[in-house]
Every structure is written in C-alpha cells, then in structure tokens.
Design a protein around this nucleic acid. Structure first.
Lengths: 180, 180
DNA sequence: TCGAACTTTCAGAAGTTCCTGAAAGTTCGT
DNA sequence: ACGAACTTTCAGGAACTTCTGAAAGTTCGA
C-alpha cells in the first residue's frame, strides 16, 4: 500500500506547500500543484484527494484556485466522465503571472491609500510637524511608485533592478540635507 | 482631541500594515513602524499604544520584533525614565535585511527537503515513473538553487536577474527533448 | 429525460494567530 | 535597598482562516 514514489512526492509537496504558504497562499495550493507536477499523467480530483488525504471539498476549491492562477489546467480524457488535471510546468510563467496580478495590484492600491493620507495631512494647519509628515508621506508614495515600475519591468524583462530604491532614498536625503 | 496629522498617519499606517501583512508579518509591525517613521521625534511605547489603540503588551512585543528585524531602534533620552523608539528610514537596508534572513534561509531549508524527497525516490524500483519523478524533483532542486543564487546577488547588488529561471527551464526542457 | 457519476458550495468544526489584561520582572532615582 | 515607573511575559479569549462532510448542483450516457 505504501509506494516510495508517492511518499517522496508527499515530502516534496509539503516543502513546496511551505514555500507557497510563505508567499501568502494556502499550503494546500502548493501541495496539490506539486503532486500534479511530479506526475507524468493528469490526475483526477479523487486521486489527489486520496494521495494527500484531503476532502473532496478542499480538493475542489484548491483546484479551482490553481486554475484561476493559471498554474494547473483541466484536461479532458475521451471516454472518461471525470475531469483530469495537470500542472503548469513553466516556472517563469507562474511567477510572472502571480507577480503581475498580485503585487502590481497591491502597489496600486497602497499608493492610492498613501495619497489619501497625504491629502488629509494637507488639511492640518501649517506647521513644521505638518511639513515633516507630508515629506515622509511623499517618500512612501515614491516608494510605491518605484515598486510599481520595478514590478512592471520585472514582468516584461525578467529582471528587477532595486537600485532604484537606492536612488529614491538618496534623492530624499539630498532634499533633507539641503534644508538644513 | 482629533489631530488631522495623527489621523493621516493612521491611514498610512493601516496601508503599510497591509503591505507588511502581505509579506507574511503581523499587520501591527507595519502600523507601528509607520507611526514611528512619520514622526520627527522618537516616541515612547505608551504614545504608540495611545495612537494606535493597542495594549501595552502588544506594543511591547511588536517593538521587540521590529528591533530584531533592525527596522526600529531604541533611543535613550537623558533624564527620561522611559525608553523611546524611532524608525529605520533606509528602505534598502530594511528590504535587504529581511530578504537576506528570511528568503535565503527558506530557500536553504526547502532545498534540503527536496533533496530528501529525491533520495526517497531513488529507493523505489527502477521504472519509467521513477525516472519521471526524479527528473521533476531535480528541476525543483535546481529551482531552489537558482533562487538562492538570485537572492545572494540581490542582497549584494540590489539587482535580481530572474532570467536564470528562464535558463533553468529551457535547460530542463532540452534534457527531456533529447531523451525522446 | 432520468439517474448515476462527478463537482461545487457552504454551514459548522477545528485549527491557528493575535491581542488583551494582569502579573511578574526590571530599572533607576532617592 | 526600596518603591515608583516602566517593560516584558503569558494564559486565556477573540477573531480569523481553512477544512470537513453533506447537500445541492451539474453533466452525460442511455
């Protein structure tokens, strides 16, 4: 009943599950993807449930989510009532899609909220504290802007140049220094 | 009682809290860091607790954690019994430290577990399934190795070149293609 | 169109994380 | 060396996340 190849897959699946959890997804997503990735033939939901000792419900929602992220897809086997599933194998495709949809959207939303905070600060009476707060808020907004730029070029070119963060910082520092 | 500058700081703190939470830390870390960052003078734990409506206990553990990550530091004010705290303002310092300690350690551990899985697979009897599983496990291990390299060069040079992931993939593909 | 095979949805259970409030611990001026 | 001022620790509880099991929904061959 115990197949060394299945056991080995479970160890790998748990490890990748932890990576995926570290990135803010459910561990189950990593486990299911890994089992599919290690298999040379598409698996049915029932087989996945059996191997990972998951309930049918959990497998269903997990497969749905994997498909929405484009990291697993359904395949149809002629003459079979069941659906089968296989893993996306192109690491770069998976990474860039997730970064594009998740991180870029995050940077966008955060920037909007920081700009809102900046507006609020302008409603306060002029004071040296107000100028300090608005100065720092501007730095945070710049940070979000740079992050958006880095994410965009990362998705396009597969390179991320964080030296821009360094530039942002020294630029901010110059402004502070000049003021003294 | 309601200070527009404080309200503005709360909006920003909540936004940055979400970023930090997205990266797998507690939201409170981001909120406290932001309040300190927007302030031009170090704050006491009690002041932070008041502004963010947090309990003294939560503020204490949060400040401890911020210090362990090197993103806040204690400052001593002569003649004051209390300790005061201020935020690290160098974004790059903070990012590189977190990446260095968290992501690099993660890649290390995951690689070890994937290698363990590979060992287990070798214990299975020879078969085409076994060679498929070991082939895919090797790709995962290579992925972890490349990730470690990318992280290292990122920390040193502030650049991350993910084209290596692309190389890894096509290399793996060639091996598969040649076998047919 | 029916019923069997399969999938999805969802209410409640289980598990996990985080915070509160209070007690214990530490520090420092006198 | 004592007590006031402040900080840390931690048990218990609140809030949140994820899973289970079962019911509802869908699909497809006959």
């Amino acid at each position: 009943m115990s197949d060394p190849l299945h056991d080995s897959a479970l160890v790998a699946a748990d490890a990748i599950g932890d990576v995926i959890e570290h990135w803010g997804f459910r561990k189950a997503l990593g486990r299911v993807w890994t089992v599919l990735y290690l298999e040379d033939v598409p698996l049915s939901a029932a087989e996945i449930a059996e191997r990972l000792s998951m309930s049918a419900g959990a497998v269903s929602t997990t497969l749905g989510e994997l498909q929405r992220w484009g990291v697993a897809k359904r395949v149809w086997k002629p003459g079979q009532r069941k659906e089968f599933y296989e893993a996306e194998t192109d690491f770069w495709k998976m990474i860039s899609r997730v970064v594009n949809e998740r991180e870029r959207a995050l940077a966008q939303r955060i920037r909007a909220r920081l700009e809102e905070a900046t507006e609020m600060a302008y409603d306060a009476p002029r004071s040296s504290r107000r100028s300090h707060v608005t100065e720092r808020l501007k730095r945070l907004v710049s940070f979000a802007l740079v992050a958006q730029t880095v994410i965009d070029s990362f998705v396009v070119s597969q390179r991320a140049d964080f030296q821009k963060f360094g530039n942002l910082l020294s630029f901010a520092r110059e402004k502070v220094a000049r003021r003294r």
